[in-house]
Design a protein around this nucleic acid. Structure first.
Length: 576
RNA sequence: CGGGGCGUAGCGCAGCCCGGUAGCGCGCUUGGUUUGGGACCAAGAUGUCGGAGGUUCGAAUCCUCUCGCCCCGACCA
C-alpha cells in the first residue's frame, strides 16, 4: 500500500471523552470515529486491524471443523417470544417495529435463529454433530457504553453454536473449542488466561471466559499461582474458615461512635482491626411478597469484605438494596449504624467468615452507636444451616478452592466465552432429532463467542507506550512502514524506496510506503502512533554510504545496514 | 433509574460569576522559506455559542424546559 493512495487521519490530541488509553489511541490513530454513544465507524486503518483479527478467528474455527454461515441481524419477535427471552431480556434488547407494526429485534446474539435453522434442517442423529458460526455485527443497548470499542453498543462478534446427539459429544466439542480459543489468542499475540465463569443470563452449565490481562479490565479474576485454578471473581468460591468460632471472651457493650459510619473508620476509632467488624447489608427480596417475613433481610459480612451480588442472588433469590427510608422504617435507624442484634421479623444471613467470628463489632441500630464484644448464640440468635453461605468476593490471600495454595487477583478484559448450553434452547424451541432408537430427543447445544472488535481495544490496552500503539505483528494494520526522507526531491531515494517496497511486498510482507509529501517527523510520528511493528528509513544521508536504517517499534534505536542486506534483515525481523 | 459534570470552529480549550454582539492553540487554505523527529513567516477561511422558550434596549453569559455526551452509584447497608 502506498500511503498517498490510502487514508491516514491522525490527531495530536485525543477527544476529551475518551477515558482509557486504547480508546484515546484508537481515536488519535484514526482507527475509529464515533457516530453516537457506543457506535463507531471503523476507518480504513482500523478496518485492516479488524479484518486481520477476523481472519485468524475464521481460520482457526474452520480448522476446528466449524462451518461458517451468516444470519440476519434483524429477527422477528416471534422467535424471541417462543424462547421466552422477549420477556426476560430487559431494555438491553433493541426492539423495533416494521411498517406493518410487527415486532422485531436487532440481534444481541443468535441462539434463537440458529436453533430455528437447525430444527428445520437436521432430523437425524446421523447429521450430528454440527457446529455453525458467523462473524457478524451485534447490537446490545448497554446501560453505559464506554471505553470506545471495548464496551460499545454495536460490535463485531464471532458466535458459534454446536449441536450434539449427547452430552459426552458436547463436552468433547467444548474442549476442542477451549483449545481452539487458546490457539486463536496465542496467534493474536495476546497475553490471556482462560478462567472458570458464571453462566450469566444465557444460562446453561459449564463455562469458561478468555480474558486478555490488563489493569483496565472490567472483570476481576482470581487465580492461584501455584496451580491452574482461575475463575472470575463473580464465581470464585470463598472457602469457609478452617478454624471454629472462638468462644466469647467479652461482654457485649454499647459504645458511642459519633459520625463513624464506615467500617474502617469505626475500627480505627475503636483501635481495633477491621477484621473485627461486621457490616450488615439490608436487602429487599423481590421473590417474597410484601408483608411476608423474610422480605426484608440483613446480610452480614466482615468489615473488609465485599458482597458478591451474583452469589447472593443464587442463595436468596432476586433482591435489591433497601432504600434508606425502608431501612429506617424497619430498624429505626439510619444506615451506618444498623446491625443484627435485637431485631425482629428480619431474616439474617451471614457470610461463612462472619459465622466463625466471636467478640465482633456491629451497628447498634441506634444512631451514633456500635456494639462491641458481640457473640452469636448469646447476644443474638445463632445463624445456622441455609442462612450461612458464601456471600462475598474472594480477596487476595484467600485459600484457593482447589486446596493448592492461595489466591491472587488480577484484572482482565473478556474477549471470549464458551458455554455448555445443554438443552435449554433445544427444549423450548423444540429442536429435536431422531436417535438410533427412532425416538425424538432434544439436541445438546454449546455456544462459543469471541468479541472481535473488543479484541482490537484489548490488544491496545496491552500494547502501547508514550508514542502510541504497539500492535502485535499478527494484527497490525501494516507489518512494515518504509519511510523515505525526501521522496519527492531525491530520485535516488525514490528509486530505492520503490525498489524496497516492491521487493518486500513480493516477499509477502504487508508493507506501507510513505510516499506522502510530509516532513520526516510527521511520518515517524504517524507510524509510531498507529503501531506499525517495523520501520525502514531510506534517506540520502544513508544512501551515500549505501545504507538504510531499520527500527523495530519497541527498539530504542535504529540499526544501520547495507542496502544489499536490508531485505534479508527485514525479512528476518518481520517473520522471525 | 439516582447523583455529579460538560455542550463555544474539525480537535483541545478560554470567555459565563459581573449581559454590550466571540477568542486562543492545533488543524485547514494560499504564497514564500524550509526538509532526518509532529517546521517557520505572512495572509486567510471556518461558529444556528447543543436546541426551544423567556427576561432585557441588548443574552454564549441570567431564568425555564429540552436534547446529547461524559463520570460515579453496597462498603454505608
Amino acid at each position: 500500500m502506498r500511503a498517498s493512495q490510502f487514508f491516514i487521519s491522525t490527531l495530536k490530541e485525543a477527544p476529551a471523552d475518551a477515558e482509557i488509553v486504547s480508546h484515546q489511541l484508537m481515536l488519535r490513530a484514526g482507527l475509529i470515529r464515533r457516530l453516537a454513544g457506543g457506535i463507531y465507524t471503523w476507518m480504513p486503518l482500523g478496518l485492516r486491524v479488524l479484518r486481520k483479527v477476523e481472519a485468524i478467528v475464521r481460520e482457526e474455527m474452520n480448522r476446528a471443523g466449524a462451518i461458517e454461515l451468516l444470519m440476519p441481524a434483524v429477527q422477528p419477535a416471534e422467535l424471541w417470544q417462543e424462547s421466552g427471552r422477549w420477556e426476560q431480556y430487559g431494555p438491553e434488547l433493541l426492539r423495533l417495529k416494521d411498517r406493518h407494526q410487527r415486532d422485531f429485534v436487532v440481534g444481541p446474539t443468535h441462539e434463537e435463529v440458529i436453533t430455528d435453522v437447525v430444527r428445520r434442517e437436521i432430523r437425524s442423529y446421523r447429521q450430528l454433530p454440527r457446529h455453525f458460526y458467523q462473524i457478524q455485527t451485534k447490537f446490545r443497548d448497554e446501560i453505559r457504553p464506554r471505553f470506545g470499542v471495548m464496551r460499545g453498543r454495536e460490535f463485531l462478534m464471532k458466535d458459534g453454536y454446536s449441536f450434539h446427539a449427547g452430552f459426552a459429544d458436547l463436552q468433547r466439542e467444548y474442549s476442542v473449542m477451549h483449545e481452539t480459543y487458546t490457539r486463536i489468542f496465542t496467534r493474536l499475540g495476546l497475553q490471556f488466561r482462560a478462567v472458570a465463569a458464571d453462566t450469566g443470563s444465557i444460562g446453561g452449565t459449564g463455562s469458561h471466559e478468555f480474558h486478555v490481562l490488563a489493569d483496565s479490565g472490567e472483570d476481576a479474576i482470581a487465580f492461584c499461582p501455584t496451580s491452574d485454578y482461575a475463575a472470575n471473581v463473580e464465581l470464585a468460591e470463598a472457602l469457609a474458615p478452617m478454624s471454629a468460632r472462638p468462644a466469647a471472651t467479652q461482654a457485649m457493650k454499647e459504645v458511642a461512635t459519633p459520625g463513624k459510619i464506615k467500617c474502617e473508620d469505626v475500627a480505627e476509632f475503636l483501635g481495633l482491626r477491621i477484621e473485627k467488624m461486621v457490616k450488615a447489608i439490608a436487602v429487599i427480596r423481590d421473590g417474597i411478597p410484601e408483608g411476608e417475613p423474610g422480605r426484608f433481610a440483613l446480610i452480614l459480612l466482615r468489615g473488609d469484605h465485599d458482597l458478591n451480588e451474583i452469589k447472593t442472588q443464587k442463595i436468596i433469590g432476586h433482591f435489591r438494596f433497601a432504600r434508606e427510608d425502608e431501612i429506617e422504617e424497619r430498624l429505626g435507624c439510619r444506615p451506618g449504624y444498623i446491625g443484627p442484634v435485637g431485631i425482629n421479623h428480619v431474616a439474617t444471613f451471614a457470610d461463612r467468615t462472619v459465622a466463625a467470628m466471636g467478640d465482633f463489632v456491629c451497628g447498634a441500630n441506634k444512631p451514633g452507636f456500635h456494639l462491641t464484644g458481640v457473640n452469636f448464640g448469646r447476644d443474638l440468635p445463632d445463624v445456622t444451616g441455609g442462612n450461612v453461605a458464601d456471600f462475598r468476593n474472594v480477596v487476595a490471600g484467600d485459600p484457593s478452592p482447589d486446596g493448592k495454595g492461595t489466591l491472587e487477583l488480577c484484572r482482565g478484559i473478556e474477549v471470549g466465552h464458551i458455554f455448555q448450553l445443554r438443552t435449554k434452547y433445544s427444549e423450548t424451541l423444540k429442536c429435536t432429532f431422531l436417535n438410533e432408537a427412532g425416538q425424538p430427543q432434544p439436541m445438546e447445544m454449546g455456544c462459543y463467542g469471541i468479541g472481535v472488535s473488543r479484541i482490537v481495544g484489548a490488544a491496545i490496552e496491552q500494547g502501547h507506550d508514550a508514542r502510541g500503539i504497539v500492535f502485535p505483528r499478527a494484527i497490525a494494520p501494516f507489518e512494515l512502514a518504509i519511510v523515505p526522507v525526501g521522496y519527492g526531491k531525491s530520485a535516488a531515494v525514490r528509486e530505492e524506496a520503490n525498489r524496497l517496497y516492491d521487493e518486500l511486498s513480493a516477499a509477502g510482507i504487508d508493507v506501507v510506503l510513505d510516499d506522502r509529501d510530509e516532513r520526516p517527523g510527521v511520518m515517524f510520528a504517524d507510524w509510531e502512533l498507529t503501531g506499525i511493528p517495523h520501520r525502514v528509513v531510506i534517506g540520502e544521508r544513508g544512501l551515500k554510504e549505501g545504507a538504510a536504517e531499520y527500527q523495530g517499534r519497541r527498539d530504542a534505536n535504529a540499526t544501520t545496514a547495507p542496502l544489499s542486506e536490508i531485505v534479508s534483515l527485514v525479512r528476518l525481523k518481520v517473520c522471525g
